[in-house]
Structure formats: C-alpha cells, structure tokens
Design a protein around this nucleic acid. Structure first.
Lengths: 217, 217
DNA sequence: AGCCTCATGAACATTCTTATCATCGAAGAC
DNA sequence: GTCTTCGATGATAAGAATGTTCATGAGGCT
C-alpha cells in the first residue's frame, strides 16, 4: 500500500511517515502543492493524506486535481471548522481528520477508508438482491429495481461498511454532503424505501440511539 | 508517554511534573491558555492534564480545541466545582481529579485513562458472551442480545476497567455525563439488566459501599 | 404548459428506553 | 441479635427516538 503524504509541516509529515511505515505502509512525501502534483502523477497511490493549508497550490485545487483519479483522500487540517469538513467531502474527499491527531486515530481512519473505498466489489449479492456498481443497477430475484441516486449511494455506504454500526451523522454527511443537524426524518425515509424495495426489512437493522447497520452473514 | 500539563499554579504544576517524571512519563508544561494551544499543536501528546481556571484562554475553549484530536483529557479542578466537572465530561474529557489530590490518586487516574482510551479491543469475549464494538452487537452463546445505549456504554466501561472496582460516581458520571447525587436506583437497575441479559450475575461483582467490579479471569 | 420523479419535512403513530418509586433482602455496625 | 444502611428487584409512566404517511415544491422531460 502506497500512501502519499502532502503536508508542509515537516514535524507532522515526519510523524505521519514514521507511523505509517511502522504499520507497514509505504510513503511518499510532498511539502507544497507543486511538488504534490508532480509526485501524484509520477506514481500510482492507494491513498492520499492532504493538508488543506499548503504553499503554492491550495489544498482545494489539489483536491480537484486528484478527484478524477478516484484515489481516496483523507483531508488533514488544523482545527476543523465544520465548513472544511463539508466542503472537503463535497469535493470528493473520503474522510477528515484534525490536527493534532492521535496516531491510533490516524491509522483507524486510514484503515476505514481503505476498507470502504477499496476494491468495492463491483457486484454485491445477498438474499436475491444483486447490486451492480459499474452499471449502477439493482435487481431483486432477477427483476430490476429502480433506486434513486440517494438511495443507491446510501445503500452502497451500508454495503461497504457491512456489519458495522454507522451513525446517522456519518450516513447523512457521506451521502448528502451536508452537515447533519438531525431534526428531520429524511434519512429514515430513504432507509425505509431501500428496505421496502429490496425486502431488506431485517437486513438493514436499526441501531437505536446510534444509526443503522447492514447485517450480512 | 508524553503528558501535557496545563496549569497556571506553578506549585501544583511542579508537583505534578515531578510525580509524573518519577513515574516514567515525559512532561510538557503550559501556564496559560495561549501557551497551551501552541504547545499542544507543536508535539503529539498521549494525555493532557487540564486545569479549567486559566489565564488568557478559558479551559473550556481549550477543551473544545483539544477534543477533536481525541487526545485523552483529565480535568483538574478545584474542590467543589461540580459544574466544571460535569461540563468537562460533557465536552469530552475522560476523567477529572479534584485539587488537592493525592499523588497516588493522580497516577492511578492517569493509568486508568490511558488503559481505557487505548485502542480498546474491538471484540471482547468471556463466558460465551461476545461484545463487538464496531457493530455494537452482543451475543450470548451465539444468540444476539439486545442492549440499549446506556447498557452498552456501561458494559464497556466495566470491560475497559476489568478487575478494577469502580465507584458508583465514576460509573454514573462517565456513562450519563451528569452529576451523581446517589439518591436514585438508576445505576442499579442498569447493572441488574446487564447481569440478567448476559448471565453475568457473578461476573459483575458488587463492591459494597463503593460500586461495582467486573471480574474476568 | 402538463406530466413525471424525487427529495423533503411536518404531523402523527409507534416502539423503545429510561428514571423513579415502593418494597424486599442482604451486609455491616454495635 | 437488633438496627441501620445499602443494594436488588419489578412495575410503571414519562420521554426520546424512530417509523409512516402525506403534501409540497423543485427540476427534468415531452
């Protein structure tokens, strides 16, 4: 696994590097936006850690530059205003971590992102339901089921995190790319429709007080 | 292990420093809020000891600043500032200690916090009961047992402090994030339900006059 | 314009959770 | 042994979280 660390502060960059190397990843380092673009192009990366405050080329521009390649990105930023988090997610980042961070937290997030962006099987099958990612189609017992965009994304989030309890916030912010305040029943409605359409009433479990979990044997 | 001591009273700060150094920790010192922010950013810390009454930047602001990084925090507050303690816990602190404190107690709390904030095992297993943290599920002899949020959190607190007697106050304030007055039987009831659901009648021991202890071989 | 589909959130229904009370039983103090 | 304090238990009602229905409006398409 190759991870590109884009971070101008060498102390932090070094800390990240040591941590990740110790955990068995290989790392590349860029210390400003220009370097980052070059290094990004010169080599295939499995994941990018991106500091938003960079010299020369802004982190956001870089994110735009990286996004088309579908390489997963974790934003690393000083003190997280919510806006950065949301804006980052909107622009295609996969997760967000605040400096200063605990190394354990960094590793956990990296693993989580890799798990859920990774070779997301193109085809997921369970209980007669087939979800095909590249064609974005879903069938149940051979018959096509029409899912809307939001429903499809939400379903995918659940599938990629099967057997993990996801909070309402995580689900909402990941799918809607907006901050979650929790005062509407929108998420519930979408969950309901997915359950109905796929006959997944007992596959997508409610985790009371937390969120939802897709339970797959 | 690096511990950041944020405390404006140099006498106390010094005492803490000597104690912790003697116990094999490395310490950093900040004497007001501004200094604290800088020092916190400049170096990764494993734990922060935070006095809430600080010059320049309030302890609460600091706590807000620190919280996103998930670095464990122990609040150090003057005797009787109950509200501080609770508000601190609500804001994400992990424990608190009142001045004046016993050196031994300080060390004990630090060890306890480090132990329980350490990458808690995702899965705990004992006597046929399996507690899975990421999916937030519990099974007994293979069958799923439904625990409520409070029950689950309480169980986790006990597990993370296995074989240690925890006071009712600690348990209650940690799980409920409210002050414990001790005039209700709420905690008892939750303990009762956990014991019942998991068949842990003799695993979760009552420590008469103190609280409870989870006894695991 | 007229006809769709879809996301949304208000209002209401339902289910689940939790605090508290009253009562009983156990442990410790004397 | 008696008294006192503390813990256990079961029932219940208030409250919180989630589920469902439905009306609305935005936006796309013909």
């Amino acid at each position: 696994m190759n991870i590109l660390i884009i971070e101008d502060d060498r102390t932090i960059s070094g800390l990240m590097g040591r941590t990740l190397t110790g955990a068995g990843y290989e790392c590349g380092f860029a210390y400003d936006g220009e370097e980052a673009e070059e290094l990004f192009d010169s080599h295939p990366w499995d994941l990018v850690l991106l500091d938003l405050m960079l010299p020369k080329v802004s982190g956001y521009d870089l994110l735009e530059y990286i996004a088309p390649s579908k390489t997963p990105v974790i934003i690393v930023s000083a003190m997280g205003q919510v806006n950065d988090r949301i804006r980052g997610l909107k622009m295609g980042a996969d997760d967000y971590i605040c400096k200063p961070f605990q190394v354990a937290e960094l590793l956990a997030r990296i693993e989580a992102v890799i798990r859920r962006t990774a070779p997301a099987e193109d085809v997921f099958e369970y209980r007669g339901v087939v979800v095909n990612n590249s064609s974005r189609t879903v069938t149940k017992d051979g018959e096509e089921v029409a899912l809307t965009v939001k429903e499809f994304d939400l379903l995918n989030m659940l599938i990629n995190n099967r057997n993990v309890a996801l909070s309402r916030r995580q689900l909402y912010e990941y799918v809607w790319k907006e901050e979650y305040f929790g005062e509407t029943r929108t998420l519930d409605n979408h969950i309901k429709r997915i359950r109905q359409k796929l006959g997944y009433e007992d596959v997508i479990k409610t985790v009371f007080g937390i969120g939802y979990r897709m339970e797959v044997a």
